[in-house]
């Protein structure tokens, strides 16, 4: 057992080491753009690892993930926008909510909890569905969440931009939360529940025959995933300071999904690696777009090239390497394997 612990500790340590390296480089380089990119990257680690804990373990694609990110962001905003700004930021706010307030750090975690509670309340029936129906209803759930965010102006300021969140999210904070998310997701994956969830993924019928309560297992994974998404949303909200509901919709879903699929939904290592690779590719392409636009080679603005490239990469990965870059073995397993081989 201690040997198993060892293997997982190694995985967490390696992945956190990667984050630590990012933080160090960022401080060494000390360029604002780089720090911004690194911070976004860490937030995306929280999001992608969160999606992994549902999708990787149950094998079901969930579109609702980004919706819960929105829930977290808005909850945290409600709790932290300074009293003197509330009148402007949220003109229609319910009177009883005006007194709500929490420290930003606490608010971020409460945002995660609210997302988890909402996920717990609405998703149980959906977990009975399989395959296509499950995905389609999760998509419907995303639309419901989006519609609510878009129109509940009392709480979200409607389709307009909500501003005034204290910008407290720093690179070290996001790196710490990302490390925590990695540890939690790995613990879940290797826990009894995680193993049961993976059993339902690999063979639903056999899992049921073994007496596994599939909806319940999936439901718990879904709640964990929403919790992490909510926290990621809060972190992001306090990073950008202002946002509108359209930040939590299909475009963002596509990026998060792309990171997970390219990295490998089956492993935490893959999820983290996917974030790093896609971020690097995205930032280079975005730079290219900017260069192209300023050089005015094309008559109009060059937009959407990054998405197109990401889309083709996703198709290529799924066609050539369906499990992603890191399909089954966590980095800890690989290291242990290497050491063993060397010992012979």
């Amino acid at each position: 057992m201690s040997f198993l612990m060892n293997r997982h500790t190694l995985t967490v340590a390696s992945l956190c080491g990667l984050l630590l390296m990012l933080v160090f480089i960022s401080y060494a380089v000390d360029v604002r753009v780089f720090t911004r990119i690194a911070t976004t990257l860490c937030i995306n680690v929280v999001m992608v690892v969160g999606l992994q804990s549902f999708m990787g373990n149950t094998g079901i694609l969930s579109f609702a993930h980004i919706g819960f990110m929105g829930v977290g962001a808005y909850t945290s905003a409600l709790l932290t926008i300074p009293a003197q700004m509330r009148g402007m930021a949220l003109p229609d706010l319910y009177p009883f909510m005006e007194g709500l307030s929490a420290s930003p750090i606490l608010a971020i975690f409460l945002g995660g909890i609210v997302a988890a509670v909402i996920a717990a309340a609405v998703s149980y029936p959906l977990m009975r569905l399989s395959d296509a129906a499950a995905v389609i209803t999760s998509f419907a759930l995303l639309v419901v969440l989006h519609t609510v965010m878009l129109h509940w102006s009392e709480v979200t300021n409607g389709p307009r931009t909500l501003f005034g969140l204290p910008a407290i999210t720093s690179l070290p904070l996001t790196a710490i939360v990302a490390a925590g998310a990695i540890a939690v997701a790995l613990m879940f994956k290797e826990s009894r529940l995680g193993i049961l969830a993976r059993a339902t993924r690999d063979d639903e019928t056999a899992a049921r025959a073994m007496g596994i309560n599939t909806p319940r297992v999936r439901w718990l994974a879904f709640i964990l995933s929403a919790l992490l998404a909510g926290i990621g949303g809060g972190l992001w909200g306090h990073f950008v300071g202002s946002f509108s509901p359209k930040a939590f919709y299909l475009k963002e879903t596509f990026v998060i999904l792309g990171m997970l699929v390219i990295g490998g939904p089956g492993t935490i290592t893959g999820a983290v690696l996917g974030v790093f690779i896609v971020t690097a590719a995205f930032e280079s392409l975005r730079t290219l777009e900017v260069v192209l636009n300023s050089a005015q080679i094309f008559s109009g603005q060059v937009v959407g090239v990054t998405e197109i490239v990401l889309a083709f990469s996703m198709i290529a990965v799924l066609a050539l390497r369906p499990g992603g870059l890191v399909p089954t073995r966590e980095i800890g397993d690989a290291i242990v394997g290497l050491i063993r081989k060397r010992k012979g």
Partner: peptide
């Protein structure tokens, strides 16, 4: 391969078409 894989690739194709229109 799987329902999920095709959903993702068709999602990707949808993104390609939309962004091509954008571009």
């Amino acid at each position: 391969k799987s329902v999920t894989a095709v959903l993702i690739t068709s999602f990707a194709f949808s993104t390609i078409l939309q962004n091509a229109a954008l571009l």
